[in-house]
Design a protein around this nucleic acid. Structure first.
Lengths: 119, 119
DNA sequence: ATGTCATTTCAACGCTTCTTGAATAGTTGA
DNA sequence: TCAACTATTCAAGAAGCGTTGAAATGACAT
């Protein structure tokens, strides 16, 4: 992932509605969700949804496929992963403390350093 | 880290100059770098630098301390880490493929899957 | 105390992004 | 072919963000 791509992905991510979209679509996996259902679930107008959906798709964070007259959107795991990777590796130079602060939640067994989050 | 904080951090990160600042300051560690030297190194005007520096500081991504008449800025490893953590855990629900796409670079020993990045 | 240096604040301007409703394109089924 | 439905595009207006130069603040040295 090059710099401008990562920047575009980061910009796309930095929006409440689009973060909601990622959060909604991630559990759906590769199957994804039809645009209409997404609009209904999130309670947003169709043109607005379409705008944000294509922003995320163009940033490489989402994929789409047509099924009959529906368009199903699903997350692009590689796109999201390499965006995070860019920040961690290229920007933060694999700084050990950043990596630790980023990954401790999913490496510790259970609620071990649970208090460190809101300091 | 709550949602609005993460959103602010992501917004702060989604900017070329500010990404440059993170990249420049990370290797400097806790000592950081004086604002004047940063401006000179990156070749940006003082007011503009100050604007971005305070944006990053307010987002919890940078810290500052005064030394004589200089202001030293250094990265807040915890802030950056928990921002990444938020995206990974809260937004992507710890999706295994996202985690894999994000962390493969730093878990593999050495140049093992070096080609997977630009697919 | 005064001059000098480092940094921040301020105001103005331009640019991009977001939202909204109406219109359009494309697909399915009768 | 026609009607119904899904999704996207378009245009307009509002809002927010970033850049710039000038001015102000605060700290040090003489």
């Amino acid at each position: 992932m090059d710099r401008s791509k990562a920047l575009a992905a980061l910009s796309a991510l930095a929006h409440e509605t689009r973060l909601d979209l990622i959060r909604l679509l991630t559990p759906q996996g590769d199957e994804g969700m039809a645009a209409g259902l997404i609009a209904e679930t999130l309670g947003i107008a169709a043109p607005r949804l379409s705008f944000h959906l294509s922003a995320l798709e163009q940033a490489g964070l989402l994929r789409s496929r047509k099924v009959a007259r529906n368009v199903f959107y699903s997350i692009d795991t590689h796109g999201i992963g390499s965006t995070i990777s860019f920040v961690l590796n290229d920007c933060c130079c694999d700084h050990p403390e950043v990596l630790a602060a980023c990954s401790h939640r999913r490496t510790v067994p259970q609620g071990e350093v649970a208090g460190t989050e809101n300091t």
